[in-house]
């Protein structure tokens, strides 16, 4: 016990004597990972397939996921096509304009796609035929920063997978 105490006192003493403040530089090199040439690793869905132009686009108000009356008419038509073509499935991509934070917009864009899915399900389409994905503000269709561009970017794009 006594030895221990002496040790502590010595350490404190030495520490307080050291007037030189020493900093050591650490090596922090990093490796570059380039995935621009690599294939998509987990192809488990239709997301990311080149499906051409969307069948239709549904537009939304700022920070909203409510479907307009015109959208409902368009979506009823989509549900009819799905019912007539039982092998078709549907991919719904949600998007947001650039205003607000990226992560919130990601969630908002997916909620828009989900609103489309929910309506189609209520119109009698089984959920397994519909896949939704959110892209947030990452894929604007118009890169300008004005109300006209924003209104075009707040959208859901629907693709038939035939």
């Amino acid at each position: 016990m006594k030895n221990f105490l002496i040790f502590i006192i010595t350490v404190i003493f030495l520490y307080s004597c050291a007037s030189t403040n020493v900093v050591e530089v650490e090596n922090r090199e990093a490796t570059t990972v380039d995935i621009t040439q690599s294939e998509i690793s987990n192809r488990i869905s239709n997301v990311g397939l080149d499906l051409g132009e969307p069948e239709i686009k549904i537009f939304f108000d700022y920070d909203e996921d409510a479907l307009s009356e015109k959208s409902l008419v368009d979506l009823l038509e989509i549900s009819r096509v799905l019912k007539d073509n039982e092998r078709y499935t549907l991919l719904v991509e949600g998007h947001a304009d650039e205003r607000g934070t990226r992560e919130y917009n990601l969630a908002l864009s997916e909620r828009r796609a989900k609103a489309v899915e929910d309506f189609l399900v209520s119109a009698g389409i089984i959920p397994v035929r519909i896949e939704v994905v959110g892209y947030g503000e990452e894929q604007p269709s118009d890169i300008s920063s004005n109300e006209n561009a924003w209104s075009k970017n707040r959208r859901a794009e629907l693709f038939f997978v035939r």
Binding site: A30, V33, I35, S38, I40, V133, G134, Y135, E138
Partner: peptide, 19 residues
């Protein structure tokens, strides 16, 4: 990263590039 066309969280070691 949206590299698989859907938002996914990656953990990435800077020294090795392992992710």
């Amino acid at each position: 990263s949206f590299e698989n066309n859907r938002a996914q969280v990656f953990l990435h070691n800077l020294a090795t590039g392992k992710r």
